[in-house]
Computed example of a mutant assay.
Amino acid sequence: MADTAAAGDRALSKSETVYRQLRERILSGRYSAGYRLVLDRLAREFTVSAVPVREAVRRLEAEGLVTFTQNVGAEVTGIDTADYTDTMQVLAYLEGAATALAAPLLDTARLDEAAALNERMRALYGADFDPVRFTELNERFHRLLCAPCPNGHLLELLDREWQRMALIRRSTFSFVPARPAASLDEHEHILALLRGGAPAEEIERTTRAHILRTMEAYLEAGRRP
C-alpha cells in the first residue's frame, strides 16, 4: 500500500512538472495557437511516460488553453476573432448598464473588496505574470461590482456572456502584455467614480469604454506583423 502511494506521489509530481512547463510555453507564446501537442513526443522530451503528459494536457484543456479535435489531437486553443469581438461588445454594454444600476447599492465593504482584488492583480503584474490568474481575478472584480444590480434579467444575460467568453478563451491578456497596467488604472478610476457618487451615465460610459479598450488592444495586437 505504501509503495502504491509513493508511486502515486511521484506520478503526480511528474504530471505537475509537465503541466507547469507546457502552460508557461503556451502563455509566453512559445506554443502559439494551433500548435500540436503530440503526447509521445512530449513524453520523450520530458523523459516521462505518456500518462503524466496526458494528465497535464487534460488540465490545460480544462483551463481553455488546449483543445482536443478528432483525428487531430491536442492543440493550443486559438481565439475566434469575430466571436471574441461580438462577445466583448455585448459584455461592454451589459456591464456598463449593470454597474450603473448597481452603483447606489454598492456599500463601502464591497468597494473595499473590489479595491483589494485590484491590488492582488497589480501584484501579479510583473516578471512572473500569470495571465490566466489575472483574468480570473479580473472577472471577479467585475462580477463584484455588478452583483447588486437590481435587474435580475440583466444579470442573467451578463452571466451568459461571461460564460461564453470563458469558452472562447480563459485569458487574452497573454496576447496584450501592455494592457493589464492600463486596465488596473481604469479599475481605480471606476472605483473612484462609484465612491464619489458619480452620475449613472458617467459610470456606464466609463465601464463600457474600459471593456472595449481591452478588445481594441487585442485586435490591434492581431494586426501587427
Rank of each mutant, 00 (worst) to 15 (best):
A5D: 13
G8K: 11
L12A: 12
K14F: 08
E16A: 08
Y19N: 08
L27D: 15
Y31F: 12
G34D: 14
L37H: 02
R41E: 15
R41Y: 08
R44Q: 13
E45S: 07
T47Y: 04
A50P: 00
A50C: 04
P52R: 01
V53K: 03
R54A: 11
V57Y: 01
R58G: 10
R58H: 13
E63I: 02
G64V: 09
T67Y: 04
T67C: 04
F68Y: 14
N71S: 10
V76W: 08
I79H: 12
T81A: 12
T85N: 05
M88I: 12
Q89T: 11
L91E: 14
Y93E: 15
A97M: 03
A97I: 01
L101E: 00
T108V: 07
E113P: 02
A114T: 14
A116V: 01
A116T: 06
R120N: 12
L124D: 13
Y125V: 07
F129I: 13
D130M: 06
D130R: 01
R133T: 14
F134K: 02
H142K: 06
L144A: 09
C146A: 14
C149G: 00
P150E: 01
P150K: 00
H153I: 06
L155I: 00
L157T: 15
E161L: 00
Q163H: 09
L167F: 06
I168N: 11
S171M: 07
T172C: 06
R179S: 14
P180D: 09
A181I: 01
L184E: 15
D185E: 14
I190G: 10
L191F: 04
A192P: 00
L193S: 07
R195K: 07
R195M: 09
T207C: 11
R213G: 11
R213I: 08
A217C: 04
A217E: 15
E220C: 02
R224K: 11
P225N: 08
